[in-house]
Design a binder for these strands. Structure first.
Lengths: 339, 339
DNA sequence: GAAATTAGCGAAAGCGTTGGAAAAATGCAA
DNA sequence: TTGCATTTTTCCAACGCTTTCGCTAATTTC
């Protein structure tokens, strides 16, 4: 009843040969006769032999597994990055295990720890918004475990990184708003611990400056999450200003959706009275009325690229000296929520 | 430069004791003197010793890893189930690896294969819509590898299963539409290979019958995906009928969002002229205008329960004879898209 | 026909860890 | 000091696999 899975030794015994012979037969080793090879392969198929990867990994000191750590998988953004990673890594026969930090430094650290003890071959990490100390990452580097950072930067740590040029995307968005005639452009910014949010805010300011629009601190509100509810309060605040904005550029689509909800509730017309541009191109964004203008990010490609760099590191024993920092280009998608 | 990770043997040598002593010291074995224990622990910390789980797993024939296979992770539905699984499993010190079948039988099969050769301790599977043969699952059962099916049923295979009572949820939704005065209720149904879609269709029919509303085949349109674009065509078809429906119950929120888009485009008022009810309670649903009525499913709980059952199987060596089939209850959430 | 080469296979070590059994070291009473 | 019990440590096997080395027997070469 309790069927044991066949091992190489089982097959060897049954065939009256040594385990090494069986191993060689299964691995197409040249020093083996056609006859024994055929016999071994036949019995192996019959017994449904599957090599024990644990034993192999122990021997080879390689697990063919990479660890991917993201703040959350529920968002379309990260699940799409994960898809990219998955698709790149699969042809290599590599699996991935996913960890969710829930934007917590402690959780992130503990996941790194766990994955390291599982002996993953490498890491792909997008740090949590809380992560300010990088000791856990440094320790990977010191142990010579390949690591690629993506999407969110860890400044001051020298390692392969893959980003989207958020600055460029945000700049495009704000400049578009200016060129479409908006004068009072607000920004619902994200947590400033995130490099991505910082870049977007910076781009916002720079775009205003380029077009000689004075910066008004009242028009920048910060929010700490990415879902629609985080857009509610900030938008209310903006609408209650003496001279409310005529455009809002939000940290992402989720927040933009919250913003649109509040604005429509207040009976204000989008885009006639207020233009909105989000970020991320969430798949739902098209289906709102009006449909949401946004900045598309090559998330899938980012996953692929990060994974490709990691695989290279792993396969070259991590001793390529040159560190790669890559930037991918986002794209403004104008839809109904902006003029 | 190329720092090797310290092994138990390294520590043993450096300390001039045997590896077993080190092992016991690290594991708090009673038969070890305070003095050596302290010395070992100190050096272990110094060398940043981390046990090699590979070796351990090989010995224990347990990987402390479970395999989770879902049709896709990008949907909020499944990522939320995954969260439930993750949260349950973590305190056990168990990791999970995630596979995406992309609704393909072949991919699903290949993932099962891969995960099995990694020697995961158990499986949590929500089968793809294409999966009609269960040979890959049977083979797990035969090899005595614990397996729990969730969300989507595989009829005829006798194993632990966790579902949401879709029938009940759909029935509630349709009955609500009837009671709110709708007479011509349509249903955009999902792929009938899916047990979930079948149950919803059945509930739709039964609810109509219960209230003596004749079934009209024109009012049932099938669609094969879950995102908004899959709602476009079916809705157009429904609207073009001689007597268009005054309510649409859709297979999920994604499709409902597509439907609302088409309906609003046609200048038809929701819910005055057409009521809409979706399924899944996608987090975006609240923020549409009108906000989408829907059937909430306990996805997180489903993940937890499925994982709990799996862990039990794993920890009892899979020889509990009683098979569990559990059903969780969904809940109708009435919002603005229905009267 | 002897020597050299080569094909085919087995024995054994090793990957890092655990745990039962045996051995060594220690403590204590006689 | 001896004997015995107890504590502490070492030895060894095991997990499943690969691979080096060495051996035998067959084949080739001169």
């Amino acid at each position: 009843m309790k069927k044991k899975r066949a091992t190489i030794t089982d097959i060897a015994e049954e065939l009256g040969v040594s385990p090494s012979t069986v191993s060689r037969a299964l691995n197409d080793h040249p020093a083996i006769s056609k006859k024994t090879k055929k016999a071994v392969l036949k019995l192996a198929r019959q017994r449904n032999y599957q090599p024990n990867l644990l034993a192999l990994n122990l021997l080879k000191k390689r697990t063919n597994t990479i660890g991917v750590i993201v703040p959350e998988i529920t968002s379309h953004f990260f699940s799409s990055v994960i898809n990219g990673i998955q698709d790149l890594v699969k042809p290599f026969g590599v699996n991935m295990i996913i960890g969710q930090s829930n934007e917590s430094y402690e959780e992130e650290k503990s996941i790194v720890q766990t994955f390291a003890s599982i002996r993953v071959d490498g890491f792909l990490i997008s740090p949590s918004s809380e992560t300010k100390k990088y000791d856990h990452l440094e320790s990977l580097i010191q142990n010579n475990i390949p690591l690629v950072i993506f999407d969110r930067d860890c400044e001051g740590i020298d390692i392969d990184k893959v980003f989207v040029d958020e600055y460029n995307g945000a700049f495009q968005a704000v400049e578009y708003l200016i060129q479409s005639g908006c004068k009072r452009i607000a920004h619902i910014a994200g947590s400033q611990t995130l490099s991505t949010a910082r870049h977007r805010l910076r781009a916002y300011k720079d775009a205003l400056e380029k077009h000689s629009i004075p910066f008004n601190a009242d028009y920048v509100v910060q929010t700490d999450g990415f879902s629609p509810e985080y857009g509610i309060e900030p938008t209310r605040r903006l609408l209650s200003l003496q001279t409310p904005p005529d455009a809002i550029f939000t940290i992402n689509d989720g927040v933009a959706i919250g913003a649109m909800y509040v604005i429509k509730d207040a009976g204000i017309k989008i885009p006639e009275e207020i233009s909105i541009i989000g970020f991320d191109d969430d798949p739902h964004s098209t289906y709102f009325k009006p449909s949401l203008s946004t900045v598309w990010q090559p998330t899938y490609e980012m996953g692929m690229l990060a994974a490709r760099i990691l695989m290279k590191r792993i396969n070259t024993n991590n001793d390529l000296s040159k560190i790669r920092v890559e930037s991918l280009f986002p794209e403004l998608i104008v839809r109904g929520s902006s003029m």
